[in-house]
Design a protein around this nucleic acid. Sequence first.
DNA 1: ATATCTGGTATTCTTTAGGTTACTGGCATC
DNA 2: GATGCCAGTAACCTAAAGAATACCAGATAT
Lengths: 112, 112
Amino acid sequence: MHVDDLPIEQKIKYVQDTLFVISGKWKLPILIAISQGSNRFRDIQRQVLPITTRVLTKELRDLEQNKLVIRTVYDTSPVLVTYDVSAYCKSLKPLVDEMILWGKNHRKKLIE
Amino acid sequence: MHVDDLPIEQKIKYVQDTLFVISGKWKLPILIAISQGSNRFRDIQRQVLPITTRVLTKELRDLEQNKLVIRTVYDTSPVLVTYDVSAYCKSLKPLVDEMILWGKNHRKKLIE
DNA sequence: ATATCTGGTATTCTTTAGGTTACTGGCATC
DNA sequence: GATGCCAGTAACCTAAAGAATACCAGATAT
């Protein structure tokens, strides 16, 4: 089934679902940072500055619930925690790439 | 230049720009409604219910500033106002279609 | 022994998004 | 002559997002 064939209410619903998952100031920046190799809490925080620890914690929990991020706790002392993007998270790549391209172009467009 | 070649800070910046334009509860639903033929203020409001007039006004102004919507006032009495999506707005279609597809699939994913 | 790293939590505060309700002034309709 | 449609505006309120600051305990580095 093609996107254009969906009834308008369905389109709106699905778009709102997607927005709910990825919107907010930090979610995509965090995913980008993790997928580029920042796997530790403090690494991510440094990459996505100036996010605070409180907000980062909350965002990571949200992403985990949406099955985009996997949190692993190693039973060492002190504990080691790693964050990784899930295989499912890769399904977001076409969307994110499209957003990067669109945002890049939009800057130019607004200056016109 | 390919997306993957951009430095991470640029990716993050462009993604945030895009999010800023399209996120929020109503922006995309409004664009979808207009592009499907709701061109009058009240038509849009009825299609995107339960949005209020106050919020709809604000969202339409934002969309206009981002060159996605064109507002035309006809000098009749009483005044007639129409809203149309701009040609530029069509550049959002790949992004929105991708969001529809992803949101559709994500519902299934979360039920698993 | 002092400072700094780790992965966070707790408390408080401010800002923003969005909602509620009421109202306007022309015009057409019942 | 009261009601309703049109395209909004105004004043106020609530809830949620996010920011600021301080703090924790166990380990490492100086």
